[in-house]
Amino acid sequence: MAEHRLRLPLSDADIEKLRTGDYVYLSGPVYAARDAAHKRMVEALSKGEPLPVDIRGLVIYYVGPTPAKPGAVIGSAGPTTSERMDPFTIPLLEAGLRGAIGKGGRTPPIREALQRHRAVYFLAVGGAGALLARQIKSVEVVAYQDLGTEAIRLLGLEDFPVIVCNDIYGGDLLEQGKAQWRRSEVLGG
């Protein structure tokens, strides 16, 4: 397990050195968006309209935070289940997205599309929202304000811990992890 500290946006060289299972601290800007924002972005693209934010070369974090307490930058802010974004991911990759942060695995067509578009999928630890919130230093709602917790936000990360799930070489952490740690002798068959 290699460790890296990387600045966002990721360069081609950064993306090329990442391997499935690497532990990475990310610093810099990401867009926060989840189900409703994804749906709207893809609807805009399908009508030939521009996206409300320029995602080219950037990473999206699948998160819908709790409301910030007075004086706080953000509330609890861990990842949501990525699979729900799968129906919307390919058009965003085609529009230039280079990575995503979420929890849980991706369906095979998305894994292939990530590889084809040389984009990386990272896992953040689901349910670690209080810890992850500390690594978010700035927040600005930049689009779809009416969606509340689901609005698109620009987040400034600092040493935000993630794990490479899908690299550009076809690696998939969930499959590799299970293959390595499965105890067939207990499961039988």
Binding site: M1, G21, Y23, V63, G64, P65, T66, K69, G75, S76, A77, G78, T80, V125, G126, G127, A128, G129, A130, L131, L132, A133, R134, P161, I163, G177
Partner: peptide, 27 residues
């Protein structure tokens, strides 16, 4: 890698309790 994940989860519980911040954004 799993140990690193569990360390984050345990530290998260400590921080959430200390700051009275939700453990998870999905309340």
């Amino acid at each position: 890698l799993a140990v690193k994940v569990l360390d984050q989860i345990l530290l998260n519980a400590e921080l959430a309790g200390k700051d009275m911040l939700p453990l998870c954004q999905d309340t």
